[in-house]
């Protein structure tokens, strides 16, 4: 799950580098327009490579950091069945991070380098994971809303012009089909439960609704990467289109659960059939992206600590392999 449009105003992708001829760029665009997939060793514009690398590595980092807020409730899951389901889901996220790092590695950057960029703050990940999971209902809300939003983003990526990314996304989408449902299932059970459980569910929706809408990234008018990414078929729909689609399908689900979406301006437009919703607090979005969300520091510290704690283990495995490779060759 969890790719996010993090493109910000003012950072314009350079569409061509000096060494790239118009003929090359033209031929490349023709291939993309013809829905031909670009593979790792094919010629590609440097900016295409950079854009993909940024997007795929952000996506991978989001999967890995995303293990933490949900992992926070693994030891406290209220039944053994819920525990097994949540563990399978968190494990999938590790797997999806792995698939995505692999796809990004085909573009010529090592996983170690990507992890170093994450830990140094140079690389971003989805803003949503900088919010805390305070109750069990948050696990339901993440599955229902966050995975729901992610699915909207991800299905079109299965047709992305870059072959390794598209293939990783096909596998990911297939595996994730249960993630949103298990989240809704948690919410459904809570909504039928006692008053405390219902309050827990409403509180989770209150806290996760707006951050979920932010997952689609800035409004189209403020997202400068979008046009080029659409032309390159890295992206198929705009941020606002996907956000609208998400609101349209999710609001009726909230009603079914008997929960109130925390937006006083929310109403259905009978002419268009679409919901109209209130303004998103973009300042909060940019603050969280800049590292000032409730959990940014905690998330990166935990990830960094695992990296440091594991160094002696990784070294030992390498030393053992080297020793025995030498012995085998001798």
């Amino acid at each position: 799950m969890y790719t996010q449009g993090l493109d910000q105003k003012g950072k314009v992708v350079q569409s061509s580098d000096a060494s790239e001829s118009a003929d090359q760029l033209d031929a490349f665009q023709k291939r993309v327009d013809a829905e031909d997939k670009i593979e790792a060793k094919d010629w590609m514009p440097a900016a295409y490579r950079r854009t993909l690398l940024r997007q795929i590595s952000q996506h991978a980092h989001s999967e890995i950091i995303g293990m933490q807020p949900e992992g926070n409730w693994l030891t406290r899951a209220p039944t053994l069945k819920r525990k097994a389901i949540l563990l399978a889901k968190v494990q999938d996220e590790a797997g999806h991070g792995l698939y995505l790092y692999s796809a990004a590695e085909t573009l010529g950057v090592s996983r170690d380098q990507m992890v170093a960029d994450l830990l140094s703050g140079k690389a971003k990940y989805s803003s949503i994971f900088n919010y805390p999971t305070l109750t069990w209902a948050d696990i339901g809300a993440i599955g229902w809303l966050v995975d729901g939003a992610a699915i909207m983003n991800q299905i079109p990526l299965c047709r992305c012009s870059y072959g390794p990314y598209a293939r990783a996304m096909v596998r990911i989408c297939k595996e994730e089909s249960f993630h949103q449902r298990q989240g809704f299932d948690i919410m459904f059970e809570l909504s039928r439960g006692n008053d405390e459980q219902k309050a827990m569910a409403q509180d989770a929706l209150n806290r996760w609704w707006w951050p979920s809408l932010m997952m689609f990234g800035p409004n189209d008018s403020d997202s400068k990467h979008s046009a080029q990414s659409m032309a390159w078929k890295i992206k198929r729909f705009s941020n606002d289109e996907l956000r609208q689609k998400f609101v349209d399908v999710t609001v009726p689900q909230a009603e079914f659960l008997g929960l109130r979406v925390p937006d006083d301006d929310l109403s259905i437009n009978d002419k268009t059939g679409h919901y109209e919703f209130g303004d998103i607090d973009w300042q909060e979005f940019y603050d969280v992206l800049a590292g000032n969300g409730p959990c940014n520091r905690q998330r990166i510290e935990k990830r960094g600590q695992a990296q440091v704690d594991g160094a002696w283990v990784r070294d030992a495995a390498r030393a053992y392999a080297d020793k025995h490779a030498t012995a085998a060759a001798a």
């Binding site: 698939y99 692999s102 990783a168 596998r171 495995a317 392999a321």
Partner: peptide, 8 residues
């Protein structure tokens, strides 16, 4: 299917 990192 994909790839993995491993020491041996």
């Amino acid at each position: 299917a994909g790839s993995v990192h491993a020491a041996d």
